Structures are given as structure tokens and as C-alpha cells.
Simulated assay, not measured.
Amino acid sequence: MDARWMQRRVYGADHDDPDPGPRDGHEYVELSGGPLDGLLLDVTGIPEADRDEGGVLVTEIGRYGAGGKACYGPALARPWVWLWEGDIP
């Protein structure tokens, strides 16, 4: 795993988790832009082909507040980075 990711927080980790960082043996993409900027998303078990579609992630800190979602999709030149595409209710 890339050493620069070891100190990063993983999307979905509890705020009181004493170790909210990445786990050995897991695969991650970096979320870039938008309300989840800088977090890592665990994509372990998601087939490569399905990762091309990106994901819709629940977040309370986006444009629509509690229950809102942030849309992220892979960067063409850097598939390990998912770029923010906007928020939806």
C-alpha cells in the first residue's frame, strides 16, 4: 500500500474509531474534490469493470445535508482517483 495513504481516513470509518485509516489487504481509491475530498474509499471486492462507473456515497456534509449523496467517478488518466461529479438529494 502506498505509504502516503497510511495516515488517511477511510470513508465510512466511525468518528471515534481509534484507527480510521486503511487496512492491509484492502484496495482503495482516493476521493478528490467535493465534500469527501481526501478520503479513501475501500473498493475491495468490487470488480475492476464495475469501478469504471464510480459510486454514489451518502454524506451529511454535501449540498443537500443529511441524507444527501456525493457522486464520484474515476479519473481517466488516474483510475486510483475518483473525481467529484456533484451532489444529489
Rank of each mutant, 00 (worst) to 15 (best):
Y28N: 13
A77S: 14
E53C: 03
W82N: 11
G33Y: 06
W82E: 04
E48A: 15
I61C: 12
D2Y: 05
G86K: 07
A3M: 02
V81H: 08
D50P: 00
K69W: 10
D17I: 07
I88P: 01
A75G: 00
V10D: 04
L41W: 08
E85M: 08
W82F: 13
Q7W: 00
A66N: 06
P89H: 01
A75V: 01
D14R: 13
P22G: 11
Q7L: 09
G45I: 03
G65S: 01
G67T: 09
T59H: 13
P22M: 14
W5M: 12
I61E: 11
Y64T: 02
G12A: 04
E27C: 02
A66M: 10
G68Q: 06
W82G: 02
R8G: 03
R8Q: 05
G67K: 08
G73P: 06
P79R: 06
D50R: 07
G73I: 09
W84V: 12
R63K: 15
V81T: 12
E85Q: 08
P18A: 10
M6F: 14
Y72W: 12
D37T: 12
I61P: 00
G21V: 07
W82R: 02
D17V: 06
S32W: 11
I46K: 02
D50V: 13
D19Q: 05
P74A: 08
E48S: 14
L57S: 10
V81C: 08
E27T: 14
G86M: 08
Y28W: 14
G12S: 05
A66P: 09
D2T: 05
V43D: 02
D37S: 15
V43F: 06
E85L: 13
P22S: 12
G33C: 14
L57A: 05
I46P: 01
G12V: 02
L57H: 08
W84Q: 14
P47H: 13
G55I: 10
L39T: 13
R51M: 15
D14Y: 08
P74Q: 09
V81A: 00
H26W: 07
Y11H: 07
L31E: 00
R51K: 12
G33I: 07
L76K: 06
G55H: 11
A49I: 15
S32N: 01
L39V: 07
G12P: 02
D24F: 13
L36Q: 06
P22W: 06
W84P: 06
D19E: 05
G55M: 06
Q7M: 03
W82S: 00
A66V: 10
D17G: 05
G45Q: 04
G86D: 04
D87M: 12
Q7A: 09
A77L: 14
D37M: 03
G65F: 02
A77F: 11
G86P: 03
V29R: 01
D42Q: 03
E30P: 00
M1W: 08
